[in-house]
Write a protein that binds this DNA or RNA. Structure first.
Length: 735
DNA sequence: TCTCACACCTTTGAAGTGG
DNA sequence: CCACTTCAAAGGTGTGAGA
C-alpha cells in the first residue's frame, strides 16, 4: 500500500482561485480526526495520537527544494491540468507496514515523466505532547507539522469535530447547492496531499498497480439516483428512532471496474455535513444554531466484506441494513447502527477498500465516494410533508399510507379537516401529491411550497479553509480524497456562477441525472459560492489508510470512546466506561470478521451475529473458496491477494510495540501466539465450534485484536491502559 | 422535539402440497 | 426430491397522541 503526498504549488493569489483549489483538498473523508469520525486504522494505530512515526526525511521530501515537476501522468478525466501546470509532485509512499517496507518518496520527473522512488528510513517515534494536545485526533498532522516545521494550528478542517464544520470545509459541502457535476464514472481521482492544499492528480491505476500488481479502476454509481435526487431537491429527511431506523431511499451502489480476483471491503459511514443545528420553519430548513456535540460514529462494514471484486460487481451493493438512531446508549446494535443528532445535517460516504482482511483496512488505500444527493437531515419526526409523501409513495413499507391504504384514508380525513383551516395553496399542494400527479407536476408544485433553502452559513467555513500554517500532512489527510475533484471543481467554479442562477427558480429542467440542482439544502441567496459548488457525483477520494483514532468510534461501542479513560476519543459527553466495553470492541470487530466466527461458507459473521435469521437482502453469497480473510497480503509480493495463500499467522508485518509505536518489521505480531483472549460464550454459538475449525487462525486474529487494544491500553498519556486492562481485558493480557 | 403505541404493509422462511 | 404455494411471524412504515 502506499501513502502518497503530493505538493502542488499554486501560483494564483486569487482568493477564489485559492479557495477553489483549497476546498478540493478538504476531503471530508480525511477529516476523520475526531472521535466522532471513525477510521478503521484507529484500532491499529491509536498510539499515533501522540507519536509521530513519519520519517524525518519527509520534511525534506516536501521541501521547496524539490524540483518543480509536472504531473504528466494525470489520468483524471475531469482534471484541469492546465490550471496546474506549474506544480511539483511528490509522492510520499509508505509501503505498507504490513509489508515491512520503508516509506518511500516518490518524485515525478517533469522532463521524463517518470517516477522515481526513494526509500525513507524509519525514525523513532517523536513525542509530540503539544501537538497531541492540540490535535489529539490527528496525530499524523501533528507529526507532519513537526516534520515540516509548520506549527499545527487547531485548524477546523483538521478536525471534523463538533466544533468544526465538516462539509462546508469541503468542496462538497458547498456543492450541496445543486449544480451540475459529472457522473461518478467520469471522475477518476488521484491521491493528493499538500500543505498548501494543492492537489495533484495522479492516476489511481498507477497507484494501485504499483502496490500489489492489481490493476483496477473502480467506478461507483448510486442506485436510485433519480429518487435520491427527488428527495434531495426537497431536503431529504431521515427519521431516527431509539431502536434504529433504516434509511430510505436505501444506500445502494453499483460498483464496477474492480479487479475480479482481488478482495475488497466496502464501508459506509455517515458524517456531519456541517456544524449547525437546523429547524424547519416556514416550510424551509433554517439554521437554528450551533450543532450539538456530535454523536460517536460507527463505520458500517458491508457484511459481505471482504469479498472479491467479481462478487461485488455482480449485484448491487446495499447498505440497507444500516440503521440510524439517536439512542446514545445503544449497546446492541453497534454493528449496524449509527448514532445521529436530530435536526442535524449528515452526509453518507461510501468507501471502497481493496483489502482481503478487515484488519488490514488501516493500511489500505481508501477510495471514498460522496454522493451529495444522499445528504439528509436527521429528524425524529418528519418536518416536510412533501418528504413524507415522497417516502410514502416510494417506500413499499409505507404502502398503507398511500391512496389505497387505510392509513391514507385516515390522512385524507385529516386533510379534509385541514382544508377548512389552511389556505387553498396548501390544500392544492397536498392534493396534487396525494393523487399521484406526474413528477413534473410535483416539481412544479415545489414552487408553491417553499421548502428550499437550508441556510448553511458557509462563509465562516470558507474563511476557515485556508490557513497557511496547516501542515502538509494535515492537508494531506484532509484532502487526500479530493485531488481530481479539486481540479474539476476549479472548472466547476466558473460554471457554478452560471448554473446556480439558473437553478434558483427551482426548476429541474436543467438537472441532469447526475445533477442535484435543486437541493433543498441550497444556501440562501448571497451565500458564498465555492468552487465546489459544482462537484462530481460522487465525490471521490483516494487516500492512505485512515489514521489512528478513527476506527474505534466506528467499531467500538460509543461508550468506549466516550469514556474518560480514552480522552483522545472523548466526546463532549462523558460516561463511565461500561463493563465489557473492550470485549464489545472485540466483538464489534469480530462480528464484522468472518474468520472469528468461521463463516467460511459464504455468510459473514456480522450478518450472522446481528441477525441470525439471515440477511434477507444480502446481495452476495461469498463463495467458500474465497479463503480466509486472513490470507496474507504482501504488498510487495506483486501477487494477487486473492491468490496468495500464506501463513495466516504471519501475514502481518507490522509491529505494534508495547509502547504503542509502530514499526515495519517482518515479524508478525501474532506468529506464535497461543493465547487467545477469552471470549464469553455469549458471543456466538458458532465461535466455539469454529475454534476447532481454525484455532490457530482465530488465535492469531484474536491476538491481533488483543494487540490493538493493548496498544490503546498502553497509551502513555491517555491513562487508559491500567483501567481498561484491569477491568476488561486483564484476562487476555499477554504482554 | 421526542417517544410510544398503533395499524398497515412487505418480506421472509417454514410448512404444506403436489408432481 | 424438487418446485411451488400458503401462511404466520418478523420487521419496516408513517401517524398521532401525549409528554
Amino acid at each position: 500500500m502506499r501513502y502518497e503526498i503530493k505538493e502542488y504549488i499554486q501560483e494564483s493569489e486569487d482568493p477564489l482561485h485559492r479557495f477553489a483549489n483549497g476546498m478540493a483538498s478538504y476531503q471530508s473523508f480525511l477529516q476523520l480526526s475526531k472521535p466522532t469520525d471513525f477510521s478503521v486504522s484507529s484500532l491499529l494505530t491509536s498510539r499515533d495520537n501522540e507519536q509521530a512515526t513519519l520519517p524525518t526525511t519527509l520534511n525534506k521530501a516536501i521541501s521547496p527544494t524539490i524540483p518543480t515537476a509536472t504531473t504528466s501522468n494525470i489520468d483524471c478525466e475531469q482534471q484541469t491540468t492546465q490550471q496546474h501546470t506549474n506544480n511539483r509532485s511528490i509522492a510520499i509512499s509508505q509501503s505498507s507496514p504490513i509489508a515491512g517496507h520503508l516509506p518511500k518518496v516518490q518524485i515525478h520527473s517533469p522532463s521524463t515523466d517518470s517516477t522515481s522512488e526513494t526509500v525513507l528510513p524509519t525514525v523513532p517515534p517523536l513525542p509530540l505532547p503539544h501537538l497531541a494536545r492540540e490535535s489529539p485526533y490527528f496525530p499524523s498532522a501533528a507529526a507532519m507539522s513537526v516534520l515540516t516545521g509548520n506549527p499545527v494550528t487547531p485548524h477546523p478542517s483538521l478536525y471534523s469535530g463538533a466544533l468544526t464544520a465538516k462539509f462546508p470545509h469541503h468542496p462538497h459541502a458547498h456543492n450541496s447547492m445543486g449544480h451540475s457535476f459529472p457522473m461518478a464514472d467520469d471522475v477518476v481521482l488521484g491521491s493528493v496531499a499538500s500543505h498548501q492544499l494543492h492537489p495533484v492528480i495522479r492516476p489511481i491505476r498507477t497507484l494501485q498497480s504499483e502496490e500489489d500488481g492489481v490493476v483496477d479502476d473502480p467506478k461507483v454509481t448510486l442506485e436510485g439516483k433519480d429518487l435520491w435526487t427527488k428527495f434531495h431537491k426537497l431536503g431529504t429527511e431521515m427519521v431516527i428512532t431509539k431502536s434504529g431506523r433504516q434509511m430510505f431511499p436505501q444506500m445502494k451502489f453499483r460498483v464496477s471496474g474492480l479487479d475480479i480476483k482481488a478482495k475488497y471491503i466496502l464501508l459506509l459511514d455517515i458524517v456531519a455535513a456541517d456544524d449547525y443545528r437546523y429547524k424547519f420553519h416556514n416550510s424551509r430548513w433554517m439554521v437554528a444554531g450551533k450543532a450539538d456535540p456530535e454523536m460517536p460514529k460507527r463505520m458500517y462494514i458491508h457484511p459481505d466484506s471482504p469479498t472479491t471484486g467479481e462478487q461485488w460487481m455482480q449485484k448491487v451493493v446495499s447498505f440497507h441494513k444500516l440503521k440510524l438512531t439517536n439512542n446514545i446508549s445503544d449497546k446492541h446494535g453497534f454493528v449496524s447502527t449509527t448514532i445521529l443528532n436530530s435536526m442535524h445535517k449528515y452526509q453518507p460516504r461510501f468507501h471502497l477498500v481493496r483489502a482481503n482482511d478487515i484488519l488490514k483496512l488501516p493500511y489500505s488505500t481508501f477510495r471514498t465516494y460522496v454522493f451529495k444527493e444522499t445528504e439528509f437531515i436527521a429528524v425524529t419526526a418528519y418536518q416536510n410533508e412533501k418528504i413524507t409523501q415522497l417516502k410514502i409513495d416510494n417506500n413499499p413499507f409505507a404502502k398503507g399510507f398511500r391512496d389505497t391504504g387505510a392509513g391514507k384514508r385516515e390522512k385524507k380525513q385529516v386533510l379534509v379537516s385541514n382544508r377548512s383551516l389552511d389556505g387553498e395553496k396548501t390544500n392544492t399542494h397536498l392534493g396534487q401529491i396525494q393523487f399521484g400527479l406526474p413528477e413534473n407536476q410535483h416539481d412544479d408544485d415545489d414552487k408553491y411550497l417553499d421548502v428550499v433553502g437550508t441556510q448553511s452559513p458557509l462563509k465562516n467555513s470558507i474563511q476557515r479553509m485556508h490557513l497557511p500554517q496547516q501542515s502538509a500532512l494535515a492537508a494531506w489527510f484532509n484532502h487526500l480524497a479530493g485531488s481530481c475533484e479539486s481540479s474539476s471543481n476549479e472548472n466547476a467554479y466558473n460554471e457554478t456562477l452560471q448554473v446556480d442562477d439558473g437553478d434558483k427558480d427551482g426548476s429541474d429542467s436543467s438537472c441532469s441525472e447526475s445533477n442535484c440542482g435543486n437541493s433543498a439544502f441550497k444556501p440562501a441567496p448571497g451565500s458564498p459560492k465555492s468552487s465546489a459548488s459544482s462537484y462530481p457525483s460522487p465525490n471521490i477520494s483516494v487516500g492512505p489508510p485512515i489514521q489512528p483514532p478513527h476506527l474505534l468510534p466506528y467499531l467500538y461501542p460509543h461508550g468506549l470512546y466516550n469514556s474518560p479513560h480514552l480522552p483522545m476519543l472523548q466526546n463532549s459527553t462523558t460516561s463511565p466506561m461500561p463493563q465489557n466495553l473492550l470485549f464489545n470492541a472485540h466483538l464489534a470487530l469480530a462480528s464484522q470478521h468472518q474468520v472469528l466466527f468461521g463463516n467460511y461458507s459464504g455468510h459473514s459473521s456480522a450478518y450472522s451475529l446481528q441477525n441470525l435469521k439471515g440477511n434477507r437482502f444480502a446481495p452476495y453469497n461469498l463463495p467458500g473458496s474465497i479463503g480466509s480473510a486472513f490470507d496474507a497480503v504482501t504488498p510487495t509480493s506483486k501477487i494477487n491477494n486473492s491468490n496468495s495463500i500464506k501463513n495466516k499467522n504471519c501475514d502481518s508485518d507490522i509491529n505494534i510495540h508495547e509502547d504503542g509505536s509502530r514499526s515495519s518489521s517482518p515479524l508478525p505480531i501474532c506468529a506464535s501466539s497461543n493465547t487467545s483472549p477469552a471470549r464469553p460464550n455469549s458471543i456466538s454459538p458458532k465461535s466455539a465450534s469454529h475454534e476447532k475449525f481454525n484455532e490457530s487462525s482465530c488465535s492469531s486474529e484474536l491476538k491481533n485484536i488483543e494487540n490493538i487494544v493493548n496498544c490503546l491500553e498502553s497509551h502513555p498519556s491517555k491513562s487508559i491502559s491500567s483501567k481498561i486492562s484491569s477491568t476488561e481485558y486483564s484476562h487476555s493480557e499477554t504482554h
